[in-house]
Design a protein around this nucleic acid. Structure first.
Length: 149
DNA sequence: GTTCTCACA
DNA sequence: TGTGAGTA
């Protein structure tokens, strides 16, 4: 629990305590506005291990990196990835050595599967579109015929 | 305004 | 995969 003035003061302290390249910081409301999310959703992602913002007097403070991760989360969500899958994708960024090879293998398989699923959906959509166009034209022809009767 | 937790779909 | 309510 922290009012916005206290948070602003805390943010300022953080920024001024780091001498050189001050990292841009964000509050949860800023991210919500920017990505059109609710605070509940962002906290939900954190709860699932997709985000790990720092805390300043209890309030969440997000870095550019958190912001970049959020972008990835939303893009992956948009193509139907589960949060659990997205977590794996994100873990790829920080992994090295032996673990990284497994991560890459997993990502290779998972993205391959996702590609196949999306292509199948596209085929289904194309087929449905063809059917609907046929129906549309048939009905149009009937309407024209009945009007001239 | 922001936090957390519990309930709910 | 989230939302809503109640709370401090």
């Amino acid at each position: 629990m922290m009012n916005s003035r206290a948070k602003a003061a805390a943010l300022e302290m953080l920024e001024s305590s780091n001498s050189a390249p001050q990292e841009q910081l964000y509050g949860i409301t800023q991210l919500c506005d920017e990505f059109e999310l609710t605070p509940r959703a962002i906290r939900f992602y954190e709860d699932k291990g997709l985000l790990a913002p720092r805390r300043v007097n209890g309030a969440r403070v997000y870095t550019q990196r958190d912001r970049a991760r959020l972008k990835i989360i939303l893009r992956a969500k948009a193509i139907g990835s589960s949060l659990e899958e997205i977590k794996h994708y994100l873990d790829l960024y920080g992994s090295h050595g032996e673990g990284r090879a497994k991560q890459l293998q997993w990502t290779l398989e998972r993205t391959g599967a996702a590609i196949a699923e999306l292509e199948q959906k596209r085929a289904h959509i194309d087929a449905t579109l063809a059917e609907l166009r046929l129906i549309n034209e048939t009905v149009r022809a009937q309407l024209t015929a009945e009007k001239s009767t």
